[in-house]
Design a protein around this nucleic acid. Structure first.
Length: 558
RNA sequence: UGGGGGAUAGUUCAACGGUAGAACAGCGGACUCUGACUCCGUUAAUCUAGGUUCGAAUCCUAGUCCCCCAGCCA
């Protein structure tokens, strides 16, 4: 658990207000919440909001939060997803202790309650086809019509229900329906389906069941069985609440949970739809559920986003009932904020340009570099200088605009932790491409300061050619080009340049160490994280997020 | 023309009849061996129209706009 940290981090919102009031009034002695994913896909950052909310309030108010799989539809659910969900919730920083449950744990009890409703005349078996049911349901503005099977006897209903359970009928032949009100303005109350016939293997119950409960019939009662006090869900379930309450009122359930709804998270330039994410994976548009461009927790993890940054982001976003789209920049802010404090600094040249220091005669002395400017306990490391170096191609311009502070012909800059150098000559290939810079250094500026106190406008990162280690660096842009992508036709909106691979990067030797698995800042560029595609002799780094880039803004304005 | 929700700076969230505030973004500046970080300053909002009240984002009335619901999905 993140414990006290989360408690102090917590904001205030209408959900927490309700819980605080319920505790104060004595309605509940302890708050019990649950995070109820359906195991039909990977968790994404939208789920992180629900997870942080449910586990968060439980922590803050001294209660508990259950992890419960809503596994009522075996035609869509898989064990792979169950495992991934548990892994991702833990990674996010939450612990359900012994409280791991499944809706399928309650199948027998739910079935008993179905028979109970039949006994009291509040449920019936309907033989109508799916099409007939749809036609009889009415529309948004017209009431529905009662099913011709609505007034069957209790005995006949019971017999049919039991034979449904026994597997006597094919898929779709009959359903069990609640007898509520076919004329209700709320369509969820027009005799909703409680059980459908599904001859399908269930990941947990195997072939034990031929009928499976609907979400509506399973969710609230599962909450009641577990003693959930506050059943927190998203807005689209708001008009299911009367039905939720109908089951609680009409069944001998052991407790009285109440449902509250909040607005789900939306992020700009991002799609948080399991359907679309699944198609992205199955259609090969991304490398998998953990592709660093994916908004899944697995993708964010691989990208190098720390879970604490996600929690901080969720806290900043808040909880309310208004639909909204959060600027993805806010997520990036939380990531930078966290990584700036925690990531050690290193030097890496993404697009190398060779520099020869013509007057350097040394053999390559070692210099001290600071691992973290704000954290002395992170210590220092030794980096080797040399006659041949690499600097960033973007740090040189032959004909620079006025505001360009970096290297250009005749200009002096500082090489971080090393010396001042001045560009003397530009070497080009036959095509006119700059391939090398001939520079001179000032031996008196060793360590990076001039005895005469003269200043330079820029400090450049660099690596020495002699001991630089080659690496592949992967840069990511948003997967979608539109600020609010159209989930209906998302392929047209995919950015073909969302992945940029730089195969020829050169990094500090310290980055090749086997223990270099933590997030790291490549100075002046961004935060990077070792990708699992790395292998002995093959380093791969993902850019988690770039540093704020004021120069890019100035440049864009030129 | 049914039912359920929602509208506050560009964005997200506060303010619960009593000075409309924060964060992110933006803009300007300071600092800087990261054009980073940090710090300082600053632009910027109550959907509309009436009403109640000494006083309304908040209460009332009438509108407007947006979202969700017609799966044997969740």
């Amino acid at each position: 658990m993140v414990g006290g940290e989360a408690a102090t981090e917590a904001g205030r919102d209408f959900i927490r207000d309700i819980i605080a009031a319920d505790l104060e009034s004595g309605r509940h002695r302890q708050v019990v919440t649950r995070f109820p994913p359906e195991p039909n896909g990977y968790l994404h950052i939208g789920h992180a909001k629900a997870i942080c909310l449910n586990f968060g309030v439980a922590q803050e108010f001294g209660g508990r939060c259950h992890l419960r799989f809503d596994d009522t539809n075996p035609t869509r659910e898989e064990q792979e997803y169950i495992d991934a969900i548990e892994r991702d919730v833990r990674w996010l920083g939450f612990d359900w202790g012994p409280h791991l449950y499944h809706a399928s744990d309650y199948f027998e009890q739910l079935y008993d309650w179905a028979e109970y409703l039949v006994h009291v005349g509040k449920a019936y078996v309907d033989d109508q086809s799916q099409e007939e049911m749809r036609a009889a349901r009415g529309t948004l503005t017209e009431p529905g019509r009662n099913s011709p099977f609505r007034e069957r006897s209790v005995e006949e209903n019971l017999d049919l229900l039991r034979r449904m359970r026994a597997g006597e009928f094919p898929n779709g032949a009959r359903v069990l329906r609640a007898k509520i009100d076919m004329a209700s303005g709320n369509i969820n109350l027009r005799d909703p389906v409680l059980y459908r016939i599904l001859h399908a293997e269930h990941p947990r119950t195997g072939a034990a069941w031929r009928i499976y409960p609907s979400y509506d019939f399973a969710h609230g009662q599962s909450d009641a069985i577990e003693g959930i006090t506050h059943s927190i869900c998203t807005l689209e379930f708001e008009d299911h609440r009367p039905l939720y309450d109908w089951f609680i009122d009409n069944l001998p359930v052991p407790s009285r949970p109440r449902q509250y709804e909040f607005a789900r998270l939306n992020l700009s330039y991002t799609v948080l739809s399991k359907r679309v994410l699944t198609e992205l994976v199955r259609g090969g548009h991304v490398g998998g559920w953990d592709d660093p461009r994916m908004p899944t927790l697995a993708g964010l993890r691989r990208r190098g986003v720390p879970p604490a940054a996600i929690r901080d982001f969720i806290r900043r976003v808040g909880v309310a009932k208004a639909n909204s789209v959060v600027d993805v920049g806010m997520l990036e802010f939380s990531i930078r904020e966290h990584l700036n404090r925690t990531a050690q600094r290193r030097m890496a040249v993404l697009r190398p340009l060779k520099v020869v220091i013509e007057n350097y005669q040394g053999l390559g002395e070692e210099l001290d570099a600071i691992n973290h400017p704000d954290d002395p306990s992170a210590g220092t490391r030794r980096i080797r200088f040399g006659r041949e170096l690499y600097v960033e191609r973007d740090d040189f311009m032959e004909n620079p605009p006025k505001k360009f502070f970096r290297l250009s012909p005749g200009k002096e800059v500082r090489l971080r932790y090393a010396y001042f150098i001045t560009c003397r000559e530009v070497v080009k290939d036959a095509a006119g491409e700059t391939i090398e810079l001939r520079c001179t250094y000032d031996p008196a500026t060793k360590g990076g300061n001039a005895p005469d106190r003269r200043k330079v406008q820029a400090t450049l990162h660099w690596v020495s050619a002699a001991d630089a280690v080659p690496a592949e660096v992967r840069l990511f842009n948003q997967l979608f080009m539109s600020e609010v992508p159209n989930a209906g036709n998302f392929t047209a909106d995919l950015d073909p340049n969302s992945l940029e691979v730089l195969p020829g990067a050169m990094v500090e030797p310290s980055l090749a160490g086997t223990n270099a698995v933590d997030a790291v800042q490549f100075e002046r560029q961004g935060y990077f994280y070792r990708d699992p595609d790395s292998a002995p002799g093959k380093l791969v780094f993902n850019r988690t997020v770039g540093l704020r880039d004021t120069w890019a803004k100035v440049q864009a304005a030129l």
